[in-house]
């Protein structure tokens, strides 16, 4: 299963995590996550995914984009990630991930987004 295929399971993973939804109850924003060359568009409303679309969308706007290489997501989503691959900012520091756009909604809800983007860690390694 490719990293993008793993991330495509995000709606189920978030729906199963009532605590993360509770912590994200103030989060309402459209954002984009790039897994390798695959873009995903997330419409978050009160901490839940109101829409989740995979693939290019012409002229779709997003508040911010978080992207990383396939290798970075693969390493990040290991059950126990190795040092230097275990946090979003560890990835950006080593130059395999990026964050662009309006950082305000991201920083206002940083722990929520870090935990959201780590959810595929919960999937079995081979599905």
């Amino acid at each position: 299963m490719s990293p993008a295929d793993r991330f495509a399971r995000l709606p189920d993973l978030l729906a199963a995590d009532s605590d993360l939804q509770r912590r994200g109850r103030w989060v309402t924003v459209d954002c984009r996550v790039d897994v390798g060359d695959q873009p995903f568009f997330l419409a978050l409303e009160n901490g839940a995914l109101a829409a989740f679309e995979r693939g290019t969308r012409l002229m779709r706007s997003s508040a911010f984009t978080v992207g990383a290489t396939d290798e970075a997501w693969t390493q990040h989503w290991q059950p126990v990630p190795a040092p230097g691959w275990h946090d979003l900012f560890a990835l950006t520091k080593r130059g395999v991930a990026s964050m662009e756009g309006d950082f305000r909604p991201l920083l206002q809800n940083l722990q929520f987004f870090k935990d959201l983007l780590a959810l595929p860690r919960r999937l079995p390694e081979r599905i």
Binding site: V80, P81, P83, H86, D87, L88, F89, A90, F103, R104, L107, Q108, L110, Q111, K114
Partner: peptide, 25 residues
């Protein structure tokens, strides 16, 4: 600059930033 401004909760932003410095174990 993100650590102290009125539109971001400083305490929660600080904690969220440093949370990644804690080992998963």
């Amino acid at each position: 600059a993100w650590l102290h401004r009125p539109d971001v909760h400083g305490g929660e932003a600080c904690a969220a930033l440093v949370s990644g410095l804690i080992a998963p174990q």
